[in-house]
Design a protein around this nucleic acid. Structure first.
Length: 271
DNA sequence: AAAAGCCCCTGGATGC
DNA sequence: TGCATCCAGGGGCTTT
């Protein structure tokens, strides 16, 4: 479910409310992707200093160490003082002095991992290979082009891998490539500098737009206050196989790349 | 060492 | 109604 916009919308929806909270109790349900990495009781008494985001990870800074939270494919977070009783898919709950943080994740591809510091192997393992943040000045068009030239993988899969630039998942990969007029199958190293600049701009624009719209809610995404997103209402190609392109009317094509679905317009997007 | 596949897991939609 | 099959927003790990 969640790509950078959904994770960021989630962060914005509870970061200010949980800051300065003191952890009172932590409980785990069924196993998530990885074990927590410490005894839940060890977190009691720690204070929440803030919530950051790195790629699709939420980083909850504590007075000692941090929690790395990933929403996987189906995860969503709730935070509040009057949450309903936990359901069968609520697998992590952290009661604090300011409210309860809960991870709902039916598929359990998500994770909550404690690391004593960001330099600790538990954190480094997950964060070390992440590419540049697309919504910061560090995301530079020239450097983006240079990085693409080093890879001959199809551009769609380069975007998804997150080693060049983070946060672009399966929906936004198709959407940004449509906006840039580039076929998903085009080899990354075959993309000219002008086209790389178009893609660079498209990534920034699409992701920023999606954050502004509250993210995409295809099946079950909602932020920590239970709000759904609206970006999917304006998807140009994602999940529109066979429907007319919103620009030229040609039928949108669907295909698979690396076990993931891809959508594109063969008229608007060139190899 | 890049690149391609394999899984982890549950539930909803579809087809017979 | 039941059952089988396929698909789903991710990504670390293993194998080529």
């Amino acid at each position: 479910m969640p790509e950078l916009p959904e994770v960021e919308v989630t962060r914005l929806s509870f970061a200010d409310r949980i800051v300065h909270a003191q952890i009172e109790k932590v409980q785990m349900g069924k196993a998530l992707r990885w074990p927590l990495g410490c005894e839940p009781e060890a977190l009691q008494g720690l204070q929440v200093l803030g919530v950051r985001r790195r790629g699709k990870y939420l980083l909850v800074d504590l007075s000692a160490g941090l929690l790395l939270i990933h929403l996987g494919m189906s995860g969503s977070i709730s935070f509040g003082t009057d949450l309903p009783l936990p359901g069968k898919h609520d697998h992590f709950e952290m009661v604090t002095s300011l409210g309860t943080l809960r991870l709902h994740d039916p598929r359990r591809f998500g994770a909550v991992v404690y690391a004593p510091s960001q330099a600790h192997p538990a954190a480094v393992r997950l964060l070390a290979r992440l590419g540049v943040e697309p919504l910061t000045d560090a995301f530079d068009a020239n450097r983006f082009h240079s990085a693409l030239r080093l890879r001959k993988t199809p551009i769609k899969q380069v975007l998804l891998a997150g080693e060049v630039v983070v946060g672009v998942g399966n929906i936004y990969a198709s959407e940004t490539l449509f906006m840039a007029g580039i076929r998903p199958t085009t080899r990354a190293n075959a993309i000219s500098k002008p086209r790389a600049k178009l893609l660079h701009a498209a990534i920034q624009e699409v992701l920023a737009q999606a954050v502004a719209q509250g993210g995409s809610t295809l099946r079950d995404f909602s932020d920590a206050q239970g709000e759904s997103g609206h970006f999917q209402l304006q998807a140009m190609v994602y999940d529109r196989q066979g429907l007319p392109c919103r620009v030229c009317g040609s039928p949108i094509r669907g295909m698979r790349q690396g076990q993931r679905s891809t959508f594109y317009c063969s008229t608007c997007q060139k190899p």
